[in-house]
Amino acid sequence: MFPEIARRLLATIPVMGVVAIAVFALLHATPGDPAVIIAGDYATGEDIARIRAKLGLDQPFLTQVGLWLGRIVRGDLGTSIFSGLPVTTLIGQRVGTTAWLTLFAMLISVGIGVPVGVLAAWRKGSWLDRLVMVFAVSGFSMPTFWLGFILVYVFAITMSWLPVQGYSPITAGFWPFLSHLILPALTLSVVYMALIARMTRASMLGVLNEDYIRTAFAKGVAPRGVLIRHALKNASLPVVTIIGIGFALLIGGAVVTESVFALPGLGRLTVDAIIRRDYPVIQGVILIVSGVYVLLNLVIDVLYVVLDPRIRY
């Protein structure tokens, strides 16, 4: 097991290398030029050329790739073309917000999605099952930005229970921290809640027809015990997979949620950088996110072994 984990950890390096080069190539193929944006309205062609040279954008593509990779190997993600701040500082300022948002959204998704899916499978064909399915379809279909505004209107503007926007770090107090995350996390979680509920239901339906479930009931095990200890444990592998993928999707989905709630997270950092063609920031964020994604997949693979001892690597 441990050699496998070590092997997988080492494998993240070439994966991230490929991601890095692909991102670099894609960005440089995109129309737009940070030098022109920096130069501003009054710039002449000479001004723009001077800024391009200063930023190294006039170098051949391969030279630029080489220089950038060389810096990465030394742990330097570069500095923002615009603010002049190190990319690591910018990511450090934002990573906490996105991490907490993603974690809360996942807790809500799993905390509601799994029990609801189990109950829907247990009461297949009942009004409860139909209700869950209606919720799931609605959850998939609802645009995040729309739901965000509805929640803000109801809970922040009409009832004044929660803040409209912004982020308060946990060091500023637990309630301010939590209150700023409830609406964004709820908004972000709905799609994944629906996804997890549907996946749990489908997986549970398959397991509930197994002989060992019938045997458990025949032995007089209480329904709760059958559902949780026998059925859910065996139905959990696909659910765990979807939770793992969900984490990655949540990081992507955070872009919209962070914009709607004005949260200073990685999603908005990326969008702002893309709009301005701030290459070092875009490259740095994507590199970090791809690394997290690879590690999450590793964690899921390890969880498979924990949940199903028959699995071996």
């Binding site: 803000v152 209107y153 922040a156 926007q165 914009s259 709607v260 709630f261 004005a262």
Partner: peptide, 18 residues
């Protein structure tokens, strides 16, 4: 200074006194 990119959010924040 806050940067709130979405005008609907900025409007709601102003109305709510944030």
């Amino acid at each position: 200074w806050r940067y709130i990119p979405d005008p609907a959010t900025a409007a709601a924040a102003l109305a709510a006194g944030e």
